[in-house]
Write a protein that binds this DNA or RNA. Structure first.
Length: 878
DNA sequence: CGATCCCGCCACATT
DNA sequence: AATGTGGCGGGATCG
């Protein structure tokens, strides 16, 4: 009876669940019902915001139950398949049915059923991941709360996290605007950049982390009103409007969420344990480190993690450490972000390339800017395309310049170098591998844990992977930035590559890094790596499994250590940081190897796959596979954008994906490592021997000498690019702290050949892979944008385009359209020469900036190999 | 028993 | 003052 009363009393809350709740609630405090819920509900009614609201009211009037059902139905339906399956949501189903509703009650939803993660999935199910730009979806908190049958408080938890990632923005009082994932990659990119800045150092040493953190933390805590801090951290603030700035604690949840994400992005392993994250966050905050505080922080992190898990960005894993196993989360979202800003760049004008640093720096700001813009939008937002618009705006804005510059920069680099950019991805394994390997076992557990739940909702996430294809940076980029690293391709690729211009890095290992961005990427990549690796592995397997192994064994092993070197600078740092500090373990998945068919073509194929996947993804169903591969359509656009901007950075690649994560071979020994830093000019590559030795003949030969583990792979690619490994180069690297490794491993290549020869990697890839072209089709995957967004697709296809244009690199990413634009023209020739040199040096020189810093700590990692991808593009013409 | 994390009190912010 | 937000942590569940 009581229950009923309540329900009546507080119909509001109960909404959907009432029945359920009742049963549950019985025990619960009756009191509260009235408390919270009431208002909302009440309010609700009174204010018909939307038609829906009215309906609700009516319904409720008619019968609360009905109302609930309906709501549920709506929500759930989408969800049903994916999510609910887990738990018996009889509710949902039942609900749908209606009468049955009561039944579900019975089940008693156990705690799990009421979990924030599940709730979040339901929430997300209600909105399209990639809403058409035109449509704007406003979210009424009250409404949603009632529909989902939860208290509003819970909705805040979800929304705050989503807001931190810009998936939603607050428009007004109970109103949020749904943006979907269109901007996700950009947001992540920004966070990555910001994270590097903030935590990069830390990363270096985790120990140090604290220090760094403080900095940040202080800001927050301090309540620094100022913009700066926040910007980075909080984008979301809606309006921050003014004064508000100070507001309450600054919404720690949002900030925490962003920071938490940053940690993943910065982590080379992509795995972050809760305790570490909590410590870091606390530090920032700097509060006392009380145990209680720690505890609270962890709780909050769980809240955040649940939401991120639902988004498919992370998954739970367990890291085994010395002490034992610890709960941790692994980033399974896109590692790289092509990000491009959207479109605009088609032309490139480049201004100049900015140094990475700037970029990095800028990034945060940009974010801010972005944010602002968004806000603006929000306000108006109902307009269409918030996202894109925003970005664009951004680009237009002051900030944007950076990107452009970057792009340009990239392109230049590309040109110069010829190419390359790359991303790095993985390495993780390597690096970690070495050390980690042992760990791996543990990881296994974690891996297992994976969740995919979210994925269903968002396929995108998974997409990360990458791929293989990557190879070319471009291609990859084009493909998806999202993907982590496409690069993984691994060995096989080379073969394929031959024709291609790019370089292919065999296993994911290789990457080129270009510019500062890359750094980030690297990191990102690295983390990703794990997955990537798998993929790579797969790929490898597919292609030349044997080879792969061999590599691994050969070079890998040994190389691995050396490899690290490569990374040394940037990566290592990263790695170390991540690893150490984070104590990440990298788990990896088994390799499965499936093979990756794609592998061979690695680049190409992968690409294709990707496309396919994407497509799949697009489809709701998109199953796992999709996930894996996943690429996310969405991203594509973004990616493109990014790519433009970043090209360098992004490599994205391609990834390919492959499905399998498994495959991980662990390491691919070879890599090319390029330091990003250098930016255009310099590149570092690591190659693993295995790979392509042949391909790269040059390289190979050189390499050998080097003894570096690395190898360049792609024959074809290589061919196109002459890569040279110059020990010397190494030297430059060495400067870096990590240098040691690098020295060993890393090599510098001059791309001269590349540049010249290669027309852009991208292009090549594209070329080869017609698939790419299909890519467009891929777009389909992306549900939302298909129409508009074709471009993204294009972007992928871009690769091909890129080919055309020498420059490609930067742009490739962008869209087809854009691609060539600017970059090519600009730099290429003139620069190259210089660049080459620079290029080689770069690593050292360049890298210096950020990445290097990080290095400090690195040493540790040596072992691991790093892999990175490079994206290389060559510009052909010159 | 530790890991998770739901629940909702309650403070601060905003209206 | 009412209501919106969201920090926070007790304590229930899960594994």
């Amino acid at each position: 009876e009581n229950v009923f009363d309540r329900s009546r009393m507080a119909p509001k809350t109960p909404i959907k669940n009432e029945p359920v709740d009742l049963s549950k609630q019985k025990g619960c405090t009756p009191e509260r019902n009235p408390i919270t819920p009431v208002k909302l509900t009440d309010r609700h009614q009174p204010d018909p915001w939307t038609p829906t609201a009215n309906l609700k009211i009516l319904v409720s009037a008619a019968s609360p139950d009905m109302r609930d059902r309906e709501k549920k139905k709506e929500l759930f339906r989408p969800i049903e398949n994916s999510e609910q399956s887990d738990t018996p949501d009889s509710l949902q189903y039942d609900m749908v049915d209606d009468s049955t509703v009561d039944e579900f009650e019975k089940q008693r939803p156990s705690r799990k059923q009421k979990s924030l993660g599940l709730l979040c999935q339901k929430f997300l199910a209600r909105y399209p991941s990639y809403p058409l730009s035109t449509e704007k979806t406003t979210i009424s908190l009250d409404e949603v709360a009632s529909i989902l049958g939860v208290e509003r408080r819970r909705i805040y938890d979800i929304v705050n996290v989503l807001e931190s990632l810009h998936l939603v923005s607050r428009v007004a009082k109970n109103q949020y605007c749904w943006h979907g994932r269109h901007n996700l990659s950009q947001t992540l990119k920004t966070l990555q950049e910001a994270g590097e800045l903030q935590y990069g150092e830390l990363m270096t040493f985790q120990h140090k982390e604290q220090d760094l953190e403080y900095k940040f933390g202080e800001r927050k805590k301090e309540t620094i009103p100022d913009t700066q801090d926040r910007p980075l951290l909080d984008f979301s603030e809606p309006d921050c409007t003014s004064a508000s700035a100070n507001s309450r604690k600054d919404k720690s949840l949002r900030i925490m969420s962003q920071k938490f994400v940053m940690l993943f992005l910065v982590s080379k392993t992509k795995i972050v344990t809760l305790d570490i994250a909590a410590k870091i966050l606390i530090e920032e905050t700097q509060d006392t480190v009380d145990h209680s505080k720690f505890k609270t922080k962890v709780r909050r992190l769980y809240d955040i993690a649940n939401v991120l898990t639902s988004l498919g960005l992370i998954k739970k894993v367990h890291v085994t450490e010395e002490r034992g196993r610890k709960p941790a989360f692994k980033w399974i979202g896109p590692v790289e972000f092509p990000g491009k800003t959207d479109e605009p760049r088609g032309n490139k004008t480049t201004s100049d390339p900015l140094p990475r640093t700037q970029r990095g720096v800028c990034a945060p700001y940009q974010i801010c800017a972005t944010r602002k813009q968004r806000f603006t939008r929000h306000a108006s937002f109902n307009g269409a395309q918030p996202c894109e618009g925003t970005r664009r705006k951004v680009s237009s804005e002051p900030n944007s310049p950076r990107q452009e510059r970057q792009d340009e920069y990239c392109s230049k680099m590309i040109n110069l170098a010829a190419v390359c950019r790359q991303k790095i991805e993985e390495d993780t394994r390597n690096p970690s591998t070495a050390s980690t390997l042992s760990l791996l076992p543990v990881p296994g557990d974690s891996d297992f844990c994976v969740n995919t739940l979210p994925q269903a909702v968002f396929p995108m996430v998974q997409a990360d992977m990458p791929n293989l294809a990557l190879l070319n940076g471009v291609s990859s980029q084009t493909l998806h930035p999202s993907m982590p690293a496409a690069s993984k391709t691994e060995n096989g690729k080379p073969t394929l590559l031959p024709s291609q211009p790019f370089l292919y890095f065999p296993s994911s290992s290789l990457f080129m890094l270009c510019g500062g961005l890359q750094e980030n990427y690297l990191r990102e990549t690295l983390p990703t790596t794990g997955e990537v690796e798998n993929r790579s592995a797969e790929a490898q397997a597919a292609v030349p499994p044997a080879a792969c192994q061999k590599r691994s064994s050969h070079r890998c092993t040994s190389p691995s250590a050396p490899v690290d070197d490569e990374e040394p600078t940037a990566k290592k740092q990263t790695m170390e940081q991540s690893d150490v500090p984070l104590s990440l373990v990298v788990p990896k998945k088994p390799f499965e190897s499936p093979k990756a068919e794609s592998i061979p073509g690695s680049g190409c194929t992968p690409a294709v796959h990707l496309e396919a996947f994407h497509l799949d993804l697009a489809s709701p169903a998109a199953p796992e596979a999709a996930d894996k591969e996943s690429t996310k359509p969405l991203d594509s656009q973004e990616q493109e954008k990014w790519s433009q901007n970043k090209d360098p950075d992004e490599p994205s690649p391609g990834k390919e994906h492959i499905s399998k994560e498994n495959a991980n071979q662990p390491f691919l020994p070879q890599y090319l490592y390029v330091q990003p830093t250098a930016g255009l000019s310099s590149f570092n590559f690591l190659f693993s021997a295995n790979q392509a030795p042949g391909a790269i003949s040059l390289a190979a030969s050189q390499l050998p000498s080097l003894s570096v583990p690395c190898v360049m792979v792609p024959s074809a690619t290589m061919a196109s690019f002459p890569v040279v490994c110059s020990p010397t180069v190494t030297g430059p690297l060495s400067p870096v702290p990590d240098g040691s490794f690098s020295a060993a491993t890393s090599m510098n290549f001059s791309m001269s050949g590349l540049a010249s020869t290669a027309p852009v990697f991208i292009g090549t890839t594209a070329v080869f892979t017609p698939k790419v072209s299909p890519t467009p089709s891929v777009d389909p995957q992306q549900p939302a944008h298909p129409t508009l967004h074709l471009s993204p697709v294009l972007a992928r296809s871009c690769g091909a385009h890129k080919l055309d244009s020498p420059v490609c690199m930067g742009h490739p990413v962008t869209l087809l359209k854009l691609q060539q634009p600017s970059s090519a023209p600009l730099t290429p020739k003139s620069i190259r020469p210089a660049r080459h040199e620079a290029f080689f040096k770069t690593p050292g020189s360049l890298g210096g900036p950020v990445a290097w810093k990080k290095n400090e700590g690195n040493q540790t990692r040596n072992a691991s190999s790093v892999q990175r991808r490079l994206e290389i593009s060559s510009t052909s013409p010159d």
